[in-house]
Design a protein around this nucleic acid. Structure first.
Length: 801
RNA sequence: GCCGCCAUGGCGAAACAGGCAAACGCAGCAGACUUAAAAUCUGCCUCCCUCGGGAUUGCCGGUUCAAGUCCGGCUGGCGGCACCA
């Protein structure tokens, strides 16, 4: 019989779809498993070979869990709002919806062609009004709880896309998508107060099982630092507050720097004697893109605010105040005390402007560079702090600041509030109305969804407003609060909105009354295992944890965390070892692979390619090995014989392989699980026959990896029902071990012979057997035995001198 | 610059918790089958060698009876953050 993968795969894919074989059961008394993969953005390019790496891995886990008797939820959907469809719409003067639907249809058929056991009855789409109705609902709850607010602020503006970007979308100072220059522009934006959750987003990582690099990245991104706020009096009669992590160096603060945007400048403008120069510097800083601002980081620039000086609270000295763009308005208080002796940036600035550098921590050489080591220094030139270590000095100075009303301890985070507005069409409309009398008013919840109206022009307006602003009939409305005239918000939500809660909707996707029913979320939540790309660690993963925590606070979900476990797959590179890209011409098309080798081979190969967490280059020849393995698997039916129990000479191999494959799937060691099955089939062919019990087990082990061929063989062999309804095979730990095992005998760490030992061989017996070996005896003779080591079942080592 | 990860045959990679380095696969070589090729099957496949052995997991050192694995120092690569006070 020939292995006709095309027919076999078509047949089973059709049957699975028709019979809803993999739909989650509504029985909430069964043990559950919720496996999740990141839903794709349905791009015009179609599926990438990277998608199946993540999807097949979770499919294998989901299929095994079903065989283990779990009620499995393994859903898929479409993160379908986003810029590419909108850009396409703009260029071709068509609505983004039809193109999006076309792309979704293509993606769906591509995923089905891979035999992924998704629950297609729970498919969701973020652009469906029945879905984004709840995205809007969550926004309104955030607003009602003071976590969504409008703020006039300097935002990142991409001059090419003409769109405001979140900090996270600016990469190396340029637009993440188009790489265009990004400048700072003042605009009124909806903001989400994620910073209020910063500490919890760090703390609760303790209760989830995320791979370490994900945890570390999140913690670094949130960027917690501890220090103090210190208030400096000024000669203008007011106060200048700074944030510092080194309050211990206060005696060494010889000048101050405030951000060019700092508000005190406006208050001091009458006193500043060189205001034109200050204005010029402010204008220059505003014009600069973030990229330029960081590019010239080495050359410190700035202007002294002449006419106002600050007073160092401990030394009483009057010190100058500068503005410089090396101080960021958005972090801390937007102002610093500069301690050039012990901060590299302050040191550079002081050198440029000829400012005094005072050593307050001894241990370095401040003639050469700033001394920033906090673990070895001793305080000097610091009055009551002299002689203390840095750590002691920090405690003492904070105590002093509090006692004298000059400051207090303070924790800061790098994490910023989330800029949530986009001046774009293809996103969820923000369900808010502005009334002169009542201010910002949310749409009543019974009026949701606020459906995205149709448009025929998708460019932003000349003033940079959302294209929706053109629809005056839609914009002009009545205030839900007072009934007076009001205007709708025309900005839409960012792409991250729909993906921040989609895992909840899968639990109850057709609920018309609620985002998710309490019963469904109690049963299915939290997601047991979420696999996805490292690139989503700091944005998507953090955003959705934030929304989940908020939903927890308002009683919608019963758990503090959305995802119990998070893992991440490595990237698949092109055959040349470079990242796949159209321009490099090294893109592998999954359709072609499936056409040539079949879905089972493709799945198997992507799992066999290497360590799941590491990047790996594609290899057109290696995939053939996986195809051969499946052909040999199909060929097992030619050497099939009767027998309802493992044959004696293969029993141990079977028990061992079941154990190995079971454990490896749970540890995502897919490559070694496949290797174990390959080794087993080699043994079977060596023996020359396989009995029914053996083939049955072999098919079950292989089923999660290669579902089509195993279903077909199961049916041909009439093992009963369908393999997807069978049970995962059990193994006996005792039968995994051989009665005797051959181990190496070393003399001084070098292998000189080998002996066969059993479970109860003693050290003395092992040494005796070892010494019986002529080579070992020869190495030992005439020398003094210093030590004899026998590690049970592992090794004998005789140390001689 | 800071933080994290990684380095093993010609290639992708294995190696449980410190115990025979290179499982499994690709490529290659030899043989069988074939008129021939493909496919398939069998065997070989880290390097050196005086055929007894010796060397070998990026480099240098350490701990240990024993190190790919643990510790210290370097080199190279990948990822993240990046004037965050």
């Amino acid at each position: 019989m020939e292995y006709n993968f095309k027919e076999i795969e078509k047949k089973w894919q059709k049957r699975w779809l028709e019979q809803h074989t993999f739909s989650a059961k509504q029985d909430f008394t069964l043990p559950k498993f919720y496996g999740l993969v990141e839903f794709p953005y349905p791009s015009g390019a179609g599926l990438h070979v990277g998608h199946p790496r993540s999807y097949t891995a979770m499919d294998i886990i989901a299929r095994r869990r079903r065989l283990q008797g779990y009620n499995v939820l393994f859903p898929i959907g479409w993160d379908a709002f986003g810029l590419p469809a909108e850009n396409y719409a703009m260029a071709n003067k068509v609505h983004p919806a039809p193109i999006t639907h076309k792309n979704i249809d293509r993606f769906r058929s591509q995923l089905q062609m891979l035999g992924l056991s998704f629950d297609w009855q729970r498919e969701i789409n973020t652009t469906d009004p029945q879905y984004y109705r709840w995205t809007q609902w969550i926004f309104i709850q955030l607003f009602k709880h003071g976590l969504a607010y409008k703020k006039e602020m300097a935002v990142n503006f991409c001059t090419r896309c003409k769109v405001v970007l979140a900090n996270e979308e600016v990469v190396n100072g340029v637009c993440e998508r188009c790489h265009g220059p990004v400048i700072r522009k003042l605009q009124s934006q909806w903001m989400l107060a994620i910073t209020k959750y910063a500490q919890r987003l760090i703390d609760d990582l303790d209760e989830v099982d995320y791979i370490d690099r994900v945890k570390t990245s999140q913690i670094n991104w949130i960027g917690r630092s501890t220090g103090a706020e210190v208030r400096f009096s000024t000669t203008a009669g007011d106060q200048l507050t700074v944030y510092t992590t080194r309050p211990d160096t206060l005696f060494g603060a010889t000048y101050m720097v405030i951000a060019p945007e700092h508000q005190l400048i406006e208050r001091w403008k009458e006193r500043i004697t060189n205001l034109p120069k200050v204005r010029e510097y402010q204008a220059m800083a505003a014009r600069k893109s973030d990229f330029e601002r960081t590019e010239i980081a080495k050359d410190k620039t700035g202007v002294e605010l002449e006419g106002v000086r600050a007073i160092n609270p401990v030394t009483g000295a009057e010190i100058p105040i500068f503005i410089s763009d090396y101080v960021l308005a958005s972090y801390g208080t937007g102002a610093i005390m500069a301690v050039p002796g012990h901060d590299t940036r302050d040191y550079e600035f002081a050198k440029v402007f000829g400012l005094p550098i005072v050593e307050v921590v001894a241990g370095g050489d401040i003639e050469k560079e700033a001394f920033t080591d906090i673990s070895t220094g001793t305080m000097v030139n610091s009055g009551f702090l002299n002689g203390l270590t840095v750590e002691e000095a920090k405690k003492e100075i904070v105590k002093w600041l509090v006692q004298n009303g000059k400051g207090e301890p303070k924790v800061n985070f790098k994490l910023r509030d989330w800029v949530f507005s986009r001046q774009r069409y293809w996103g969820e409309p923000i369900p808010m109305v502005y009334c002169e009398k009542c201010g910002w008013v949310p749409l009543p919840e019974d009026q949701l969804p606020l459906v995205l109206p149709d448009l025929d022009q998708y460019e932003q307006t000349d003033t940079g407003e959302s294209p929706l602003a053109r629809l005056t009939d839609w914009v002009n409305t009545t205030c839900p609060c007072c009934g007076g005239p009001a205007r709708r918000e025309t900005d839409t939500m960012p792409q991250w909105a729909g993906s921040s809660w989609y895992y909840l909707r899968y639990m109850d996707p057709h609920n018309q009354q609620q985002l998710v029913s309490p019963e469904a979320v109690k049963y299915w939540g939290p997601v047991d295992w979420y696999n996805g790309g490292m690139e989503h660690t700091t944005l998507h993963l953090l955003y959705s944890r934030f929304w989940h925590k908020f939903l927890y606070d308002i009683g919608v979900v019963p758990t503090r965390e959305p995802y119990q476990k998070r893992t991440s797959q490595g990237m698949i590179l092109g055959e040349d070892g470079e990242k796949m890209s159209k321009s490099r011409g090294n893109v592998i098309n999954p359709d072609e692979i499936v056409d040539t080798y079949g879905a089972d081979t493709m799945r198997l190969y992507e799992m066999f390619i290497g360590d799941f967490e590491k990047t790996a280059p594609w290899s057109s020849s290696s995939i053939k090995g996986c195809k051969r393995f499946l052909e040999r698997t199909f060929g097992l039916m030619d050497i099939l014989c009767d027998g309802e129990d493992y044959s004696e000479d293969l029993a141990m191999e079977f028990h061992r392989t079941i154990k190995k494959v079971s454990e490896d799937i749970d540890a995502m060691g897919f490559n070694t699980a496949i290797a174990a099955m390959m080794a087993l089939i080699n043994r079977i062919y060596q023996k020359g026959s396989v009995n029914r019990a053996e083939l049955r087990t072999f098919l079950l082990l292989l089923n999660p990896f290669a579902p089509h061929i195993t279903e077909e063989m199961w049916e041909i062999c009439a093992f009963g029902g369908e393999i997807s309804g069978a049970s995962w095979p059990a193994y006996d730990e005792a039968l995994c071990r051989a009665d005797t095992v051959e181990i190496a005998v070393q003399v001084n760490g070098r292998v000189r012979g080998r002996i066969s030992v059993g479970e109860d061989t003693t050290q003395q017996q092992a040494i005796e057997m070892a010494m019986a070996d002529p080579k070992v005896a020869a190495e030992v003779s005439g020398k003094t035995v210093v030590k004899q080591i026998y590690v049970k079942g592992k090794i004998v080592n005789i140390v001689v001198r």
